[in-house]
Write a protein that binds this DNA or RNA. Structure first.
Lengths: 117, 117
DNA sequence: TCCACACATTGACAGCCTTCGATACATCAA
DNA sequence: TTGATGTATCGAAGGCTGTCAATGTGTGGA
């Protein structure tokens, strides 16, 4: 599925109730990109993880400091962090044995502003 | 809603790799509220629906004008709109036969600012 | 009253997501 | 090299999600 290319596609089956409504809708690619960002924060545990990192005094955190507060296993936290990285909400930096995660706050702000622009 | 996240849960089981990291993490209820908002926009089709409504010239749209652009069946669109309403991203107003949806932009902005505050 | 229309709900199915234990990989110390 | 430690990956179980056809509900017109 997911065929609709872009096309505003003003094919209202029955144009009866509202004005033509030639609205601007985000295209498929944009919708998927935005959904990816929001989906990454669509899980309470990932919200906690992201808040931990953004509120970190040092500006970065490693996995070993994240498993405790959220109460999840290390593989699960690693999985969640991967999703946050893929969404562009955090960046990963390997330093020795540890993997440090830093917030990329602009990503969320930009995504949210996609609707108000 | 959106009570500023200020629950300090500094339960680091093993403080070995990083400084104590007395971070502020959002509490459970806040995390669930935020996740609910972001989860509602975690689907490409709901992103499209939300963008259609926010970009609407009249400031509101009915279901019959939404099914066409997203290419989904009427029950599916109705289902997605219900989720957006429950997340507080749009409001529903029944006027005669039609149900009009209006954007509540502040909800998304507030949710996004929960991390930068 | 009856019918047509706009929308919501239900039931069902396929696919995805969250989570864990087990395991593999990478780095550092001895 | 060997062992210990921090992370990532794999495989599986259970639950949740998106989608539709069919049906129900409420409104307005004839």
């Amino acid at each position: 599925m997911t065929t609709l290319p872009v096309t505003i596609d003003a094919t209202s089956p029955q144009a009866s109730c509202c004005p033509p409504a030639a609205d601007a809708m985000v295209d498929d690619a944009t919708a998927q990109d935005l959904a990816k960002v929001f989906k990454a924060l669509g899980d309470p545990n990932r919200v906690k993880l992201f808040s931990l990192i953004t509120a970190s005094a040092s500006g970065e955190m490693c996995v070993c400091d994240l498993t405790g507060p959220v109460g999840l296993s290390q593989p699960t936290v690693s999985h969640h962090m991967k999703l946050l990285v893929e969404a562009g909400l955090v960046t990963r930096e390997q330093r020795g044995k540890w993997a440090y995660y830093q917030p990329a706050i602009g990503t969320l702000a930009n995504a949210a502003q996609a609707f108000t622009a």
